[in-house]
Design a protein around this nucleic acid. Structure first.
Length: 415
DNA sequence: TTTCCACAGGAAGGTACGGTCT
DNA sequence: AGACCGTACCTTCCTGTGGAAA
């Protein structure tokens, strides 16, 4: 048996927490222009006026959330420091997993109320929910900023209700004590297009766009973090530039670049290396891509997993880029063998579209032949068969071994 | 040129479910 | 207990597309 032992890290990290998602750096790097816009948009707050609603948009990892918290922290400390007579309360809601205005209102109510007074997610009439919400906000009083992160997670059209109600609550007499402003953070600009015109016009007045970071900006971000995170000599600027370049190639996402740096350093530390090397970065990149896909697979529904499993077995059978109909036929067989009720072809097409969106598979449109246009599907090159089969093991147990799954290679070869 | 075929995808509606209200 | 509410998941229907065949 190999000898197992733990060594205290004396060469790489000074403070690994600095590279975590939850860490807020004391200074924001490379976003001065948007911070200025933010500052202007929030001026009514410090003057005790009704706050404007602000719409913040940009791709993920462009610093929207970080800048929002930074500027609001700054606002709070300035109010305190200069004894400004403004009672400011901030309510942070992450909208991931929230599907409608109704659910959002309930989420806010429950975030204000103590645990024992929380209400359930369904059952109440919508009007009643808004009444409860306004009561809670009014009880807080003063200026209340609702920070709604990942607002685009909510079905765009279903957001109209909430975004219509809140700004008008005061004029309609539902709010007497509280001045409520919304800061909506979205990865998706089309959110604004899908809103009703009156809702849209009030939001678009104060919208702030976050562009993706370019490579030099990402370098500055990484440099700032690495100075605190690492011991001297552990990471040189060349490694930071490497991570920055990968980040810039992946949509200018600072979070991804920081994750890449941390993963590289973890690999380096695990190997007792004195410093982070390019090879560590390369392996970290592969590992993170693979992890992302595997996480997506584990979150799929049972039928989506069977659909993916159908594609895995077809691919293992040597069927290159099978089309939707072929995947469906295999899916039906698998579902049947597992005693599951199979869904219709139309639904499986939706599953295949979802798998493509999650980048678990690649979906191509083809034109030609007697069938006109059709779609073909293949596993994303980052998904190894072994990992996919591991993640789908629950489904495989149910469906049994009725296809040529025995032939699925278990070596970590990508297909 | 028209018709047919196989397909993609949007829209609307059905159903089951977990919840509250009266 | 039964009406009602919102949600998730799914089916059905429909329109549009593009190549082949008539």
């Amino acid at each position: 048996m190999a000898e197992i032992g733990f060594n205290v890290d004396t060469t790489i990290y000074n403070d690994r927490e600095v590279l975590s998602d939850t860490y807020s750096p004391p200074k924001v790097v490379g976003r001065n222009d948007v911070l200025k816009q933010y500052q202007n948009a929030l001026l009514p707050v410090i003057n005790g006026e009704e706050p404007d609603d602000i719409f913040v948009y940009g791709k993920s990892g462009t610093g929207k959330t970080e800048c929002t918290h930074f500027i609001l922290n700054q606002l709070e400390s300035d109010i305190e420091e200069h004894n400004v007579p403004v009672d400011l309360e901030r309510i942070n809601i992450n909208c991931e997993g929230i599907s409608s205005s109704y659910s959002l209102a309930i989420e806010i109510i429950n975030s204000i109320r103590p645990m024992e007074d929380e209400i359930s997610n369904t059952g109440y009439k919508e009007k009643r929910v808004y009444k409860m919400l306004f009561n809670e906000l009014d009880a807080i009083g003063g200026t209340v900023i609702l920070v709604l992160d990942e607002l685009d997670a909510i079905d765009h059209e279903k957001l109209n209700g909430f975004l219509y109600q809140i700004p008008r609550a005061r004029t309609n007499g539902y709010l007497e004590n509280a001045k409520v402003g919304i800061v909506g953070i979205s990865n998706d600009l089309t959110l604004l297009d899908d809103l009703k015109s009156d809702v849209k016009s009030s939001l678009s007045d104060k919208s702030i766009q976050f562009d993706p970071y370019d490579s030099p900006e990402l370098f500055d971000v990484l440099k700032q973090r690495s100075d605190d995170a690492f011991l001297p000599g552990a990471v040189d600027d060349g490694i930071l530039r490497h991570c920055a370049a990968i980040g810039a190639d992946n949509g200018g996402d600072a979070r991804k670049a920081i994750d890449m740096l941390r993963e590289s350093a973890d690999i380096s530390r695990a190997e007792d290396a004195d410093e982070v090397l390019s090879d560590h970065v390369r392996r970290a990149k592969e590992q993170l891509q693979s992890e992302e896909v595997i996480t997506s697979i584990s979150s799929l529904s049972q039928n989506e997993k069977i659909t993916l499993y159908a594609l895995v077995t077809l691919t293992a059978d040597g069927s290159e880029k099978p089309r939707s109909r072929r995947v469906y036929e295999r899916y039906e067989k698998l579902a049947e063998s597992g005693g599951e009720r199979s869904v219709r072809y139309r639904t499986v097409r939706d599953y295949l579209a979802e798998l493509d969106t999650l980048q678990i598979t690649n979906r191509d449109g083809e034109n030609g032949g007697p069938d006109g246009n059709y779609r073909t599907h293949e596993l994303n090159e980052q998904v190894s068969v072994e990992e996919a089969v591991n993640e789908l093991s629950g489904v495989i147990k149910i469906c049994g071994v009725h296809t040529s799954i025995e032939d699925v290679p278990t070596a970590p070869d990508t297909l």
